[in-house]
């Protein structure tokens, strides 16, 4: 069962990460005090990982491990939770020009939920595209807190959420082991599987949580006069 889950990270299955899933889990075990996570969701780029089976690792580390996907659309990148065979037949996940509205509508119809990630990021974030295109329909939430975002990118999301009433969630977007769990999502209800995750993401009742360690600003040395 999990309440605090990193909803966005990449393992060595993605082309731009070399992080083994077990290394993530070992790191989280070491960092338990700083990043009290109960689960992770692997969101591999432009694919759904049908081959990996993490059940043994779940048992070994006592963590919920779920699988999802990060796909690419004309409105930027979108996380797809609850991926199933019907979705994989309907969409070519490797296509970087998927139609966002189709993805959101069809994924919902097929039992999942599609949620835009890092919306404040240039080119691949929702906000920039909303400046030139009509807003998408059926978006239930956006990744308000992304651990890989640059300064200012997460800050842009508050206005988007206020304007459209989206739910807000968080994820580390980790590609490196040490980044896992720096941002996550806290749910009001326990999550035990993908179906419950999809239901919770649709319904609301969660918030982004930031576990990044903030260094205290340096204090000026006393003059010692």
């Amino acid at each position: 069962m999990a309440r605090v889950i990193d909803l966005h990270l990449h393992s060595e299955v993605s082309d731009d990460s070399r992080a083994p899933v077990e290394a993530y889990l070992k790191w989280l075990a070491r960092k338990r005090d700083e990043r009290p996570l109960d689960g992770i969701v692997l969101t591999e780029h432009r694919q759904f990982d049908t081959r990996s089976d993490y059940r043994d690792l779940e048992d070994k580390y006592g963590m919920l491990i779920l699988k999802a996907s990060e796909v690419e659309t004309e409105y930027g990148h979108v996380l797809v939770y609850g991926v199933n065979d019907a979705m994989l037949q309907r969409f070519d996940f490797s296509n970087v020009r998927l139609r966002a509205q189709e993805v959101i509508d069809e994924v919902a119809r097929m039992g999942g939920v599609a949620m835009p990630c890092h919306p404040g990021r240039p080119t691949i974030g929702l906000i920039e595209h909303y400046e030139n295109r009509p807003p998408l329909e059926g978006v239930v939430g956006v990744e308000a807190l992304n651990g890989g975002s640059k300064k200012g990118e997460n800050e842009r999301v508050a206005t988007l959420i206020d304007t459209y009433g989206y739910h807000a969630f968080g994820g580390s977007d980790a590609h490196l082991v040490s980044f896992v769990g720096i941002c996550a999502t806290e749910f009001e209800k326990e999550i035990t599987n993908t179906e419950e995750l999809v239901g919770a993401l649709r319904a609301g009742g969660y918030r982004p949580v930031d576990f990044r360690v903030r260094r205290a600003p340096a204090q000026p040395a006393s003059s010692g006069t």
Binding site: D15, D16, H45, R46, E72, H77, S94, V96, R121, P122, T123, I124
Partner: peptide
Amino acid sequence: IYEKTGRSGS
């Protein structure tokens, strides 16, 4: 051979 999109485009 594959394509991806990032902050700076394709």
